[in-house]
Design a protein around this nucleic acid. Structure first.
Lengths: 223, 223
DNA sequence: TTCGCTCGTGAACGAAATGTACGCAATGAT
DNA sequence: ATCATTGCGTACATTTCGTTCACGAGCGAA
């Protein structure tokens, strides 16, 4: 479980954030602070994995809180929440190690996506890297998957069919098998399965056969 | 022009980095430091946009230098350079606002790509955002997908499986044993183990038996 | 209707990743 | 030296992947 500290001055927003976080599987709420001083006090004895930090606090700016933490050697991850549209603020935040940046007002889906990206980032930084590629992939986990429109060449109906079939095979299925089951070609099935893998909803795992090139099976990723 | 401070203890590497940076359009070199203390002294009167920071410094760790900077309110951007394959180090670096992470040894193309990504990030954080989409786009510039050029005939997934199994046997394993444990043939295991040996992540050591040709065991190489 | 355009699909074709098989290399024993 | 033994290294057969390109459906304009 990833424990989250919520720092938000408005009572109603704080409660909403708390409920939101609890709705995402794998996350729990470690505590809640109303001011920067409050947060610092809590962090003296609590050690959450992530801080959901509203930058607009009554006693100090959120980034000042972040700097205090870094100066004290606290490397806790931070997700910034603000209504400020200033992009130079984003740069300052990145410098202080803010991993995610969310603009108010946001929907539950937006927060969930950011939390899931963060979770994937944590999981991908578990072991050791064999090369630059793995480092890049770990950092890319934090990348925002612009989920807005479907990529060219893909249909919502086909996507739902493929995703539905994928969900029926927790142990994994090959593109060939999905295609046959749905009634489309392997090529088409592969296109949609690749899309699902891109957006983190499927995992690609090679399955080694008796002989020949291994088969690539897709496993549904329940986040 | 984006000015870059180079922090690297080895004279030859520092000079190479300097030449590399100068070859990328839009970048200039603000100075060069051999130690962490040296860098801190330079940064008292110089204000570069970016620090090319070797994490392995003689007097302190590169990330300690980063923390000192953040504690002092210096939000200068940092690109980390290291030969350590430890992915938890990547997480610490991200927490301290390291925007790019480059593994040694790297080619000019690799550094150029990272510098250009950084430049694009700066340019995309110039004005104000109209929505979450623009914030995501700006952050994505830093983490743009990079193809990891694995040699032909090798797969990322299999490589990770083999490398993972290798790490579980500090005393060394034969290709035959790794293959059996992973579920691939000895030949395939050998291909990947040889690749790991080529890239310096494994060592090849013969193990002499009672009789017959000695067995070749691979030991994980921790840098 | 007919033309022209776009978009989703699938057949076909190299290319890629793996296993099998076999010759040969490296060691100990005689 | 020569032989027995064991495992390495490589050619090639095998299977699947990934990409390219043509086809047909749908839609808007003339």
């Amino acid at each position: 479980m990833i424990s989250v500290l919520i720092v938000e001055d408005e009572e109603i927003a704080a409660e909403a954030n708390r409920r939101y976080v609890l709705r995402v599987p794998g996350f729990q709420v470690a505590g809640s602070a109303r001011t920067g001083a409050d947060a610092l006090r809590i962090l003296r004895h609590e050690h959450p994995d992530l801080i959901l930090l509203d930058l607009n606090l009554p006693d100090m700016h959120g980034l000042d809180l972040a700097r205090s933490l870094r100066a004290a050697g606290n490397l806790c991850d931070i997700m910034a929440i603000t209504s400020a549209r200033d992009l130079t603020m984003v740069r300052s935040a990145v410098s202080l190690g803010v991993t995610q940046y969310l603009l108010k007002p946001f929907t539950f889906d937006a927060l969930r996506q950011k939390l899931q990206q963060y979770k994937q980032f944590r999981e991908s930084t578990a072991g050791a890297a064999t090369g630059q590629g793995e480092v890049d992939r770990a950092l890319n986990a934090l990348r925002a998957a612009t989920r807005s429109p479907l990529p060219k060449g893909l249909t919502q109906a086909t996507l739902e069919a493929i995703a539905g079939e994928l969900g029926r095979h927790p142990e994994g299925v090959s593109a060939q098998a999905v295609g046959t089951l749905i009634g489309v070609s392997r090529v088409t099935a592969r296109r949609y399965l690749e899309h699902l893998a891109e957006t983190g909803l499927a995992r690609r795992v090679p399955r080694y056969g008796e002989v020949g090139r291994p088969e690539l099976v897709y496993q549904p990723e329940h986040l």
